[in-house]
């Protein structure tokens, strides 16, 4: 329960720091103070850009009625992505911007079963392994790996908020999944996520050193496919030091937000509740 809160706090602190930095940057009088326009502008023209602070976040909205907002049909240029319309939940959250990271009601932080191992986490032990293997036994381990999913699936159900009841027919329908089915479902989910988010992702084309701008973002999802928390940029340190990376990371984050909610099979929620996205624009050019 604590981890997302910590992430969220860090992230907010980061945003605040970024705001401070950019504020100073634009406020730097040396940058533009003596900018005399050259020709075809009057010689006495003085251009003095100043940073302007963001309007108060807590300021009451003039027209805080998101529900009355005409839906997408009013827009003559509908986005091709079906993901464009944001779910009302997210919008409500947006309308009342909490100054602090609101504790999420989701139990997401404590996923009971380690289905997959992150590249980042070298030391992962299958968790609901009841008996530790006494000696090295390849077959036993394989078996363990394969069984793990099945044994944890029911658990998921218990801990999770109830899933939407109508399963996506395009996906596997069974709850009693065998390893092969799990593997297939995982592959399908990976490609579903990749293709949905890729459509929302406009990468910084032609950026210097674009091939190094791999952005990793961790997201936590609700059973309806919406974001349960702010997407977390894994390499946050680089946001501060590398302007191009920061832009790339923001673009990746926008892609995630724009694509929310993801359309994923609810019966496999245990597979996709916690996702790390690796945005790699290196193949673009």
């Amino acid at each position: 329960m604590r981890k997302p809160f910590i992430y969220s706090s860090l992230f907010h602190a980061l945003i605040f720091a970024m705001a401070l930095i950019s504020w100073h940057w634009f406020g730097d009088p040396e940058l533009l103070d003596d900018n005399e326009p050259v020709i075809m502008v009057s010689p006495d023209a003085l251009i003095s850009p100043d940073a302007i602070p963001t309007p108060e976040k807590n300021k009451p909205e003039d027209a805080p009625k998101p529900e009355e907002k005409p839906p997408a049909e009013k827009a003559p240029e509908p986005e091709p992505e079906q993901a464009s319309p944001t779910p009302p939940r997210v919008e409500e959250a947006a309308e009342a911007p909490p100054p602090e990271p609101a504790p999420t009601p989701e139990p997401t932080p404590e996923p009971p079963k380690p289905e997959r191992v992150t590249k980042d986490l070298p030391n992962v032990t299958p968790r609901d392994k009841p008996k530790p293997p006494k000696k090295f036994d390849m077959a036993a381990i394989e078996k363990l790996l394969l069984n793990k999913t099945d044994s944890t699936a029911p658990q998921t159900k218990d801990n999770k908020p109830k899933k939407p009841t109508d399963p996506d027919p395009s996906q596997s329908k069974s709850d009693n999944r065998n390893p092969m089915e799990n593997a297939r479902a995982t592959a399908n989910i990976q490609s579903a996520i990749a293709s949905q988010i890729a459509r929302c992702w406009t990468a910084p084309v032609g950026a210097t050193g674009a091939e190094t701008l791999v952005v990793r973002i961790r997201i936590y999802l609700r059973p309806d496919g919406s974001l349960s928390d702010e997407p977390v940029i894994v390499d946050r340190g680089r946001m501060m030091s590398d302007n191009l990376y920061r832009v790339a990371a923001e673009a990746a984050k926008r892609a995630v937000q724009r694509c929310s909610p993801l359309k994923l099979p609810p019966e496999y929620y245990d597979l996709w509740r916690d996702v790390q996205l690796n945005f790699d624009p290196s193949k673009m050019l």
Binding site: P111, K113, P114, E115, R116, V117, T118, K119, L121, V124, T125, P126, R127, T186, I189, Q190, I193, A194, I197, A198, R199, C200, W201, T202, A203, R218, D270, L271, W272, R273, D274, V275, Q276, L277, N278, F279, D280, P281, S282, K283, M284
Partner: peptide
């Protein structure tokens, strides 16, 4: 450990 699905996205629009 935590379940985490890793997804590579390398075809931006």
């Amino acid at each position: 450990a935590r379940a985490q699905l890793v997804v590579d996205i390398n075809n931006p629009t």
